[in-house]
Amino acid sequence: MAKKLAVRVDDRLIHGQVVTQWVKVFHAQKIVVIDDQVAIDKMQKSILKFAAPPDLKVSILSVEKAAEAWKKNKFGSGNVFVLFRDVKQIAKLQEAGVSFDEITIGQMAVIHDRKQIYKQVGLSESEAQTLMDIEKSGVKLCFQMQPTDRKESLEIMRKTFPNLH
Rank of each mutant, 00 (worst) to 15 (best):
T20Q: 13
L141M: 12
N73F: 05
K159M: 03
K65T: 13
I134K: 06
W22C: 10
T148W: 15
T160R: 09
V25L: 15
M145D: 05
L164N: 06
D113N: 15
G16D: 14
V139T: 15
E152D: 02
I47W: 09
F143G: 06
K159S: 09
V63T: 14
T104W: 02
A28P: 05
H15R: 13
Q17L: 09
V82K: 07
P147G: 11
Q17C: 12
Q116E: 13
A51G: 12
V32H: 14
V58L: 10
F84I: 07
I40P: 01
N163E: 13
E95Y: 00
F75V: 06
Q17M: 07
N73D: 15
K57S: 09
A67K: 14
M1C: 01
K65M: 15
T148V: 14
A91K: 14
A128F: 00
S62D: 09
H112V: 00
N73C: 02
Q129V: 00
T148M: 12
D11Y: 07
S59H: 12
P162M: 02
F161V: 00
Q37Y: 13
W22K: 08
W22F: 10
S153V: 00
M157S: 04
D149Y: 05
P54G: 05
L13E: 10
K42Y: 02
L93Q: 03
E68N: 07
I40K: 15
L141P: 01
A2W: 05
S59V: 00
V33N: 12
A2E: 02
E125G: 03
L5V: 14
G122D: 07
V63N: 05
S77L: 05
L154I: 14
F50M: 15
Q116C: 10
E127T: 04
D101Q: 12
G97N: 07
S77K: 15
S124E: 04
V58I: 12
I14F: 14
I90R: 08
M43S: 01
M157C: 13
Y118G: 00
A91D: 09
G106C: 10
R114L: 02
L164Y: 04
V33F: 10
V110G: 06
S46I: 00
L56D: 00
K140E: 03
A51R: 08
L154R: 04
T160L: 03
G138I: 05
L131Q: 01
W22S: 07
F50G: 02
D101Y: 02
K42L: 00
I60Q: 08
D101G: 09
